[in-house]
């Protein structure tokens, strides 16, 4: 489980988070939505335990499976070594990864479908592949909490599909508490159970994705008129999507 309880964050005179509370239980998935500058990143950092709080508290484990937005690394490590970093928590300051850790890293890499990349140099990978590797690293920690900062953003469509598909699969397995931020309400709709909207007035709206990802709440969030669209998925079932109204009306 991961979350915040009446968390307040101040930067100088400006209040960024006003008594924000949310919780993500194990087996659930929560998307944080909001325009830039409204505290998405701050809320995420607070949930990670990186942001000192002026009031309130953070709930969650010390070790979290975190996938950052930026996928570049200072040193061109081997992919397997990157994933192995996830095993650090269990090793202590002077520990070296053993056979069990190597196995866990391999398993995590296989889990994300990137086993064939194990010997590759990380800096030679594409953005999408890198995010998969970082996701594998997060899984390798063995933490029951996954936190992702704008997964799939800055990726091309093919890689986006891969990453998001993987997140959806993880959600269905119901083994992790998944928290992520996103710009894209449809992404939230696709892979989140619940949604937390950080509104322009500083307030927050929380609820199931199916309810909140709708034209009215989204218009209140983004200040842009949205339109609901019905799609038929590959499995034949109906799906909803929201698009900005300025794109046009449905034919």
């Amino acid at each position: 489980m991961i979350g915040l309880e009446t968390a307040v964050v101040r930067f100088g005179g400006r209040i960024v988070l006003r008594g924000l509370s949310f919780q993500v239980e194990r087996g659930r998935s929560l998307a944080i939505l909001g325009p830039n500058g409204r505290g998405k990143t701050t809320a995420l950092r607070a949930a990670l335990g990186l942001q000192p709080l002026s009031a309130g508290r953070r709930i969650g484990p010390d070790v979290v499976g975190y996938v950052p937005q930026s996928v570049s690394l200072a040193h061109p490590y081997r992919v397997l070594d990157v994933v192995a970093m996830g095993r650090a928590a269990g090793l202590g300051l002077f520990g070296q990864p053993g056979a069990a850790d190597r196995a866990a890293a391999e398993a995590a890499l296989a889990r994300v479908g990137a086993a064939h990349l194990r010997e590759a140099s990380y800096d030679r990978l594409s953005g999408g592949e890198r995010q998969l590797v970082l996701l594998a690293r997060a899984l390798a920690t063995g933490s029951s909490v996954l936190v992702l900062d704008e997964p799939g953003s800055a990726l091309d469509l093919a890689n986006q599909a891969r990453v998001l598909g993987l997140l959806d699969t993880l959600r269905r397995e119901r083994r992790h508490a998944i928290l992520f931020t996103t710009h894209d309400p449809n992404q939230a709709l696709a892979i989140a159970d619940d949604v937390l909207m950080l509104m322009p007035d500083g307030g927050a709206q929380q609820g199931p994705a199916g309810e909140l990802i709708a034209p009215e709440p989204l218009c209140g969030l983004y200040g842009v008129e949205m339109r609901l669209v019905r799609l038929i998925g590959a499995d034949g079932r109906f799906r909803r999507a929201v698009l900005p109204a300025f794109l046009g009306a449905v034919e």
Binding site: R45, G65, P68, H75, M85, A88
Partner: peptide, 14 residues
């Protein structure tokens, strides 16, 4: 290896 990561990533790994 871990100390070369940025603050957020490193902290999340303990």
């Amino acid at each position: 290896n871990l100390l070369s990561l940025d603050e957020a990533e490193a902290r999340s790994l303990g």
